[in-house]
Design a protein around this nucleic acid. Structure first.
Ligand code: MN
Ligand code: MN
Ligand code: ZN
Ligand code: ZN
Lengths: 118, 118
DNA sequence: AAATTAAATGCAACTAAGTCGCATTTAATA
DNA sequence: TATTAAATGCGACTTAGTTGCATTTAATTT
């Protein structure tokens, strides 16, 4: 995966791809910093590189943090504006936009739990 | 609009609502700081208040800035990951999510212009 | 209309996610 | 194994957004 894109294969990169591949939702640096052996500068440099190589995608959440993910089937992510939780929405929307290339879709609002408790 | 929600009516609040009502795309503090007479602390305190009162919505863009908008018909916004431009997509998607309340939808990718030039 | 008061504002200091420069290490190739 | 360009770690830095506090203002009471 890394080598396919002509990138050199390092421990840090393997570790990062591995974490994202096995994650069930998008992850921020903060989420995984304790599981990472690399420095945060390396984390961010590699996520930027992987995004440019179209290996991963990302979005900014409500909490000012960026979340990264690898996904085969393009599906939307839901961000709760109350509890900041992030969920994968299984309903594949899409949905082609003429002339645009779609990388990610994020829907913001209230999750079922937060909507009840308000 | 402000008073309807039981909020007190101040010059700063009127100015802010007015700007957002007449904007053709979502706006960040940076976009309008030169048109604003209020301090940035006031800007952010009022946007937070208006969001809680459900008068405005917002999303985080690619450029680490938060964009605010008022819109009658819920439509998605497109953010280009290359040039950071933001567009209103007129095709109303949606699309109800069972149990969720939807406040905004953002689609990230490459805009037609950036997709050509790559 | 003036007095009261709680809320709104401006200012400056602060926070924290992400970035950058540079010295050191490591992966790739010869 | 030696070479070298690229990757990493570290600390300093940037900057959007937040917070505490003194001052001002909107709303209510007299
Ligand atoms: Mn997902
Ligand atoms: Mn719009
Ligand atoms: Zn929630
Ligand atoms: Zn573009």
């Amino acid at each position: 995966m890394i080598k396919e894109k002509g990138l050199s294969y390092t421990q840090a990169r393997e570790e990062l791809i591995d974490l994202l591949l096995h994650a069930s939702t998008p992850l921020s640096y903060d989420n995984i910093k304790n599981s990472l052996s690399m420095d945060k500068a390396t984390f961010y440099r590699n996520t930027a590189l992987f995004e440019a190589a179209e290996i991963i995608s990302s979005f900014e959440s409500n909490d000012k943090k960026r979340y990264y993910f690898i996904e085969q089937n393009l599906h939307p992510h839901f961000i709760c504006t109350n509890c900041n939780s992030i969920e994968c929405l299984k309903e594949d929307i899409i949905y082609a936009l003429n002339g645009y290339k779609i990388e990610s879709i994020t829907i913001k609002g209230l999750c079922p739990r937060c909507q009840k408790n308000e």
